[in-house]
Amino acid sequence: MNGDSKKKIVKEIKIDIDKCIGCRACEVACSAFHANPKYSSINPARSRIRVVMDELNNEYVPILAGDYTPAECPGRHTFLINGKQYSECSFCRASCPSRDLFKEPDSGLPLKCDMCESDPPLPEPMCVQVCRTDALTYVEREEEVKEEEVSEDEVEIGLDALIDKYGLQKIEETFARMSLAKKG
């Protein structure tokens, strides 16, 4: 393996569940920030952060929307918290076919936290800005990452998935059309 080393900024929202008071201001702010036009509507169901609440068992867990996943998990773990059993789904951040969490309520399209990337950039993501109890805090750190050369095997895995989904014919056609366009 060879490759150059490169500096990368890793953005992270740290969650301290003991500090969460369950006010859901993060949901309000997130949905406002991502509304189009910006702030024009409020809807926690569109928020990319959710406070999973089970008031009767004293659980308040903010969860940020993660990646879309096309399939359900093969098996699910369970957690026992304060004597109550929760499915792994309860605290999962994926937008997945088995539940409506982290999907646009109208279209069903997946939602994903984008750390409020915008131009000009925000000092901190919106949810962190409104979380006055510091259950959510923002951390930026520089990490040295080695840029690894991508092997053909790895490209193949990605292409395989696309072929599975759309069929070889479609991919070939798309590839040909894109090659032409790129090469002019």
Binding site: A35, P37, Y39, S40, I42, N43, A45, R46, P105
Partner: peptide, 9 residues
């Protein structure tokens, strides 16, 4: 799960 609109957001 519906939106609530704001006049001067």
């Amino acid at each position: 799960t519906k939106d609530l609109n704001i006049a001067h957001p």
